[in-house]
Design a protein around this nucleic acid. Sequence first.
DNA 1: TTGTATGCGTTATCAT
DNA 2: ATGATAACGCATACAA
Lengths: 345, 345
Amino acid sequence: MAGVSQTTVSLILNNRTDVTFPESTRQKVLEAARKLNYVPNQFARGLKTKRSRLIGLILPTISNPYYQMLAQYVEEATAHYGYNLLLCNTSRLAEREAFYLNLLSGKFADGVIYALEPFMPEKAKQLFGPERIVVIGDANPELGMPNVSLNSFQAGRLVARHLLELGHERIGFITSPFTGYTSSRRKRMEGVIAAMREAGLEHQLVIKEGEHERENFDGSYEIDIGFSLTEALLRENEVTAVIGVNDMVAFGALSYITRTNMRIPDEISVCGFDNIYLSRSLRPHITTVDHQLNEKVRLAVRMIVANAGDGGDEAAAAEEEPKGPVLVPRDSTGPAPAKRSMRIV
Amino acid sequence: MAGVSQTTVSLILNNRTDVTFPESTRQKVLEAARKLNYVPNQFARGLKTKRSRLIGLILPTISNPYYQMLAQYVEEATAHYGYNLLLCNTSRLAEREAFYLNLLSGKFADGVIYALEPFMPEKAKQLFGPERIVVIGDANPELGMPNVSLNSFQAGRLVARHLLELGHERIGFITSPFTGYTSSRRKRMEGVIAAMREAGLEHQLVIKEGEHERENFDGSYEIDIGFSLTEALLRENEVTAVIGVNDMVAFGALSYITRTNMRIPDEISVCGFDNIYLSRSLRPHITTVDHQLNEKVRLAVRMIVANAGDGGDEAAAAEEEPKGPVLVPRDSTGPAPAKRSMRIV
DNA sequence: TTGTATGCGTTATCAT
DNA sequence: ATGATAACGCATACAA
């Protein structure tokens, strides 16, 4: 229609810098494309270039505010690079992970972001090669995959130090179960223990762990765990602060405490991890730790885009040092109450 | 490697029913494929078949529990059909919607599910054809697109009738702004008004609408709106029940009321819409309306799969009548308090 | 039951 | 600066 060849059209529409055309030709082609509502066929393009501009995101479920937040960030980052996000909910089932790995492979996706610990790292590496995969989570060298680190240990330490500085001495840590696949829960606890030990208060820490991982993956499970563990914790112990292993568990704690008519933070402090948006919406606003997830997600996406792609300067950008977790103090934590509550100690 | 032709391999690997092979040949091919870790190239396949087994989901943001729930259901439904979900967050920006429509088109996606009212229905229809699009939301014949209906009007009526049955007469309805693009808020209100009118209590309804739509799309905005509108509502009016335009707004109302030390539901009832999982986790569990979204989402996905696809029986299944909204009574609503609160009336 | 040949729409190579 | 042509990997019409 523009009276030129396929080649010319391709070169112009992809506005490549290595060739140059007279403005007149360029306009003719652009005009014709516009008139025809031309949209390049991504199948044909992918067949040649082996690139899809698609990134798969593997996570257990989107019904959990943490993963929802993460997915939101990934979506924003991929869109920024003109990429599209494929959502893959595995419910932590190996079978579902395998299903999605197959679906994504065949050079179909340019890369895969794991937001949980891979069940089948070998299969993933075999299908994509390690350089097309990024794991967002606590570093695990055994996996042999690129990793954007979350440093849960440091996060745990930050929270505990915050409470110690406020004068709390007897502290409860409540958590959903330590399972094989979520080492971050354990690492948060270890960070808390480390801080308590540094303060010489190691034996003042009370740890309560939930019983069974429940099949359902929405946040209600964690809220329930937080509620019942706090009930048990306060029945047996005189703590002045409760640390939930994440914000949802902390909300459960808050629910129970509110119901007992104890005042927060005057009589008891509560805090969590993750800085999900509810932690700054529900009242009281809760003290938590921000992972700077947005920055980290962007880094992960850049790593894949650089590797899949046009390389060069992009690749350099991917080498940045990720930032560490930061404490976000809010209304739910305050100075430890006076001796009254310390009578057992 | 199996000593047979491409054709044979293709036929066997796609296990087509219209041809039949001796078991020996079949095994040879399957064996070879397994050994080679063969994964079909989806680009090449798509180039021939014009099918991607990809469905685009267009929504404003995933940082809002309603859309998060919807996305979860869509993901489950698409996975069930061996499809993959492309997540497209538009933040209700026309520009972003256009970006995604282009990205998805070129026969790249088999269909598009709109979870919000399309900004550019014409462009969408032009790129995909109306039969490849399904809108999940209140029916809007003007769009000329297939629609899975949510019936917000009926939902509003259900809630109001529930309160009327409990003896409430003076009721507040609080809502984020009625904007051009979310007619469901207005329809919920109209349903409430209809029920009040049927009871002859039309003038006992107090409506409070938030000021400006805020740019940020996480639920915190709606919680804040609920909080401040309830404050204003209770300062000026003696209502015995508050209806939030959705569960998040209702949570905001709950937050304010809890802080005033009024008892729920003894002194005041609160309810919302959508049945997001938080409504059954946070305490008190709130009365709400369930849209039976899961069923509706499955229907929407089936409609696209049937149209894109292998047709026949699938297409028939897509004709089902969608179910209506149902009331979910929980702890936050109870009988209207005795006359004490009714002195103004 | 199985093989041969063709084409999907694009980009890349090599001409001119 | 631009055009001709091949090739990507698969599915299919047709032949055998």
